[in-house]
Amino acid sequence: MPVIYMYAINTTAGKDARLYECPIYRKPARTDINYIGSIDFESDQSAKHWITRGVALLCDIK
């Protein structure tokens, strides 16, 4: 995954069903303590496809 720059957008539009809400963690241990946030990714596959495979991102905090 390339470097991702994040910024906030204030919107009242609904969420697109094709987006997968991918969680971001500080460390490989997937706990609430290590959870940072999530990013919505557009995909040809349904969100259930990625959830079943446990897809998540790890943050490099160096």
Rank of each mutant, 00 (worst) to 15 (best):
T52L: 13
W50S: 00
R26Y: 03
R53Q: 11
Y5R: 15
E42D: 15
T11D: 02
N34K: 00
S38T: 04
I4Y: 04
I24H: 04
P2V: 06
T12L: 15
S46N: 14
I33W: 05
F41E: 09
A8I: 12
I39K: 07
L19H: 09
A8S: 07
I9Q: 12
P23H: 01
D44Y: 10
T31N: 00
T31W: 00
A29R: 10
C22E: 04
A29H: 06
Q45I: 00
R26G: 01
A17T: 09
A13K: 07
W50F: 03
D40L: 12
A8N: 15
S43G: 06
A13D: 13
G14I: 05
D40M: 04
I4T: 15
E42N: 13
I4V: 09
P2H: 03
R53Y: 04
Y35S: 06
R26C: 12
D44N: 12
V3R: 03
M6C: 05
R26I: 02
L57V: 00
S38H: 15
P28H: 07
E21G: 11
Q45A: 11
I4H: 05
A56R: 05
A13H: 10
I36W: 03
K62A: 10
T52E: 14
K27H: 14
T52H: 08
Y25A: 15
G14D: 08
Y35W: 09
G54V: 03
K15D: 13
